[in-house]
Design a protein around this nucleic acid. Structure first.
Lengths: 205, 205
DNA sequence: TAGGATCTGGACGATCGGTTCCAGAACGAG
DNA sequence: CTCGTTCTGGAACCGATCGTCCAGATCCTA
């Protein structure tokens, strides 16, 4: 029973995200966001609160999206497809990173790098995301082991942690200017060095 | 023939580095640096130029130190010790990252994350550092292969890129809040999955 | 259609932060 | 000792930036 919002909140968050993504938290002005979204400051502050709250909102959505993306690509299939799903996911992240030609990198890494030291909310959220990603990777590695695509003797948690480090590492070296070909090579090499079962212990499932 | 500097330039750079390291480029004020170093603004600007120049100087020294550190620990020994040197180095980086309890992370990653997208100097310098690190790792892997500690069939460049990604990835997940134990586990796992030569092809050197 | 409630957009105030500037201090050369 | 030069510390300048405020606009309800 009053005047309704004239803008789409989700769309505004996307535009704000792109801005934070490109220039970081401290490097982005609220005026920039107002300009980019076409909103006045009144609407902006009325809808989202201050700069910090807006960033937290954007950062939270980004984290959710990353985990959802991983969950969508990794879980829910039969054990037979586990290794293929894992490979596809790792290569997908590599390709995605390699395609980031202007080196904005990932807002998760960028936000954590800039703020984790000072902002407990950002620190906690990024830790939560890392945990979720590691759990997803571990589930998939478990499935690979059940199907005999990865050596039973290996610790799934350790391999998951290693893969997560590789994924985030590709992001880091990509931002630092390593060429795209090397990035996809890293993904392939990581998959290639995963311990395969020796033939005598391999399960036929 | 005039009044000499009353401060040690190297020491001032260290203090400035610590400040940039803790709060990033945009998040650090020149007033902070003046306070931390005890210098007046006049001395600061007179000696180092503006904020950007000061950061570039600090960033450059950091990059040099990282590569020197790696070179010191990796090169210059006999092939027999290559694998041990490599292991020690990887574990050293892990331990170093794990010990960073307040999650400042690495200034290389932090600077690149914040500025590589906008500052060509930072982008170029970090790319150069990545290249140098990769070359060092590759040399060491070559040595391992010559001595029969790593499978001849593997591409040294690919393995070096993978290891670099793991090293930088540990840095990233460490900053995001992964616990120290996991970090050292990642290092050990990475070393464990490196392809060892099969017994029939192993060289006795 | 009238009225109240919310939204809008931009002007405004207050503060912050990078840089300049300068008066005095400190020092080497002659 | 004197002079010229460079260094020092901090006051001051000025543009940038966060967040507020408000007059007018818009819409829902009755």
């Amino acid at each position: 029973m009053a005047r309704p919002r004239s803008f789409d909140e989700g769309r505004v968050l996307e535009l704000a995200r792109d801005r934070f993504w490109a220039t970081g938290y401290a490097g982005t002005r609220m005026d920039d966001i107002a300009e980019v979204t076409g909103l006045g400051k009144g609407s902006l502050y009325g809808a989202f609160g201050d700069k910090s709250a807006l960033f937290h909102r954007v950062f939270d959505e980004w984290n959710t999206a990353i985990v959802e993306q991983a969950a969508l690509r990794l879980t829910g299939g039969a054990d037979e497809g586990a290794f293929a799903r894992l490979s596809t996911y790792v290569r997908f992240v590599a390709a995605h990173t390699a395609a980031d030609t202007d080196r904005r990198g990932c807002l998760l890494a960028k936000g954590a790098a800039e703020l984790a030291h000072q902002d407990p909310v950002v620190a906690g959220r990024s830790a939560q995301t890392m945990g979720a990603l590691m759990a997803l990777l571990q589930m998939e590695i478990d499935a690979c082991q059940r199907h005999g695509d990865i050596d039973d003797g290996a610790d799934p948690a350790q391999l998951a942690a290693l893969l997560l480090a590789v994924l985030r590492g590709m992001e880091a070296v990509g931002k630092a200017g390593v060429d795209p070909q090397t990035l996809t090579g890293i993904a392939d090499t990581a998959l290639a060095v995963l311990p395969r079962p020796t033939s005598r212990t391999q399960r036929t499932s």
